[in-house]
Design a protein around this nucleic acid. Structure first.
Lengths: 201, 201
DNA sequence: GGACATAACATACAGTCTGTATGTAAATCG
DNA sequence: CGATTTACATACAGACTGTATGTTATGTCC
């Protein structure tokens, strides 16, 4: 054995420390909130010191951004996995919608992505993250539906943002104890209302 | 003259000091953010000391809540003033929508009511404020439209929350520089889509 | 119309947090 | 194997929040 027990490359050390910090921060940021969580608590939970944190992240906000980014990626992954490209436009939208609502039931996600995220990072930064991950498939689905003539032609960016916002609020309401059926019904009515012709009775 | 120059009742003093604090806090909370604004700065701007602040408000968060409450009331007032009861259900909805988007263009309102508010006070507290002020007239308008058979029957609470959320996002996007026309068109399409029959061409 | 109580502040203090500066050991590189 | 850079740990300065305590103005009661 060359050293006491572990000889790790710098790349491995960085990766492990960053992952530990992000995991500990995610746990605390979701149990409480961004503002109520201090860096001393985070580094203790991660088993490192504040020096390590400020070596790998510019500041507390940058660590939070990393947590949010990871979470947004996870949500997008779950949605993509639930809506195979074999479905037609409308079915894909429905499947994606349900997958989104299911994904947002993972504890802490609404706080990270819908409450603290916009306040701490700003709406612009959150839009950038959303467009890179979650909203991308939604917008593509909407554009596909409009091309297939199953949806009224509307500005894609605006429609995506407003529908996404409605989904977000539904996720928040459901987590707060509201009827998931009610909110799902309204969401479907909103989507169906965008068809050029009323859905076949 | 009975005193040096001013003899004010306690009620007047309290009212004036609270108003000064709320005004100064509103200015700073909207110029920067809740987190970036310290109480020393607020009291300096208001011309009092931190002792006065903590005498009238339990903590910084309570002062923020007072600011948000005042702002929500102001928005609701503008909306009510713009949609007289003489209009029919759908026209009242349109008028209210436009009034809301116009009201949210007052600088700082989106940050107070849509970004920092939910993060600092929580969605539950914001829902309570919204239901007390803004969303009340929206829900009444929707219920009226459903009763008048000009709108599909849906769970009123859920529909109100989701439409309100879409309006909120539209206000944010417009403030960020997006096309107000695009967002308005999508909002109208969403509302019209809820009619049982397609609107007369 | 004075004594007493209470409200409206101002001042001082303790604890905590954030970001930075500095020091040290391990890894990488030539 | 020496030099340099990376990955941390420790120490420090400044700021902020909430509280405790002191002071002055107002309201109340006989």
């Amino acid at each position: 054995m060359q050293q006491e027990s572990a000889r790790r490359s710098n790349r491995d050390r960085t990766e492990a420390t960053r992952a530990d910090l992000i995991a500990a921060a995610r746990k605390l940021f979701t149990e409480k909130s961004y503002a109520e969580t201090g860096t001393p608590e985070i580094v203790t939970a991660a088993g490192v010191t504040r020096g390590a944190l400020y070596h790998h992240f510019a500041d507390k906000q940058a660590l939070f951004a990393a947590v949010v980014e990871q979470e947004a990626r996870a949500v997008a992954l779950e949605i993509d996995r639930a809506s195979p490209p074999s479905l037609d436009a409308r079915d894909a939208l429905i499947a994606g919608s349900d997958a989104y609502l299911a994904a947002m039931r993972v504890p802490g996600r609404t706080r990270l992505l819908l409450l603290d995220g916009p306040a701490v990072l700003g709406r612009a930064a959150m839009d950038a993250i959303d467009n890179r991950h979650g909203n991308r498939s939604l917008r593509e689905g909407l554009v596909a539906a409009m091309r297939a003539q199953t949806m009224t032609r509307l500005p894609a960016q605006a429609l995506t943002a407003l529908l996404a916002s409605a989904f977000d609020r539904a996720a928040l309401a459901i987590e707060a104890g509201a009827s998931a059926q009610d909110y799902r019904a309204v969401l479907m009515a909103l989507i169906d209302g965008l068809s050029p012709a009323p859905p076949a009775a």
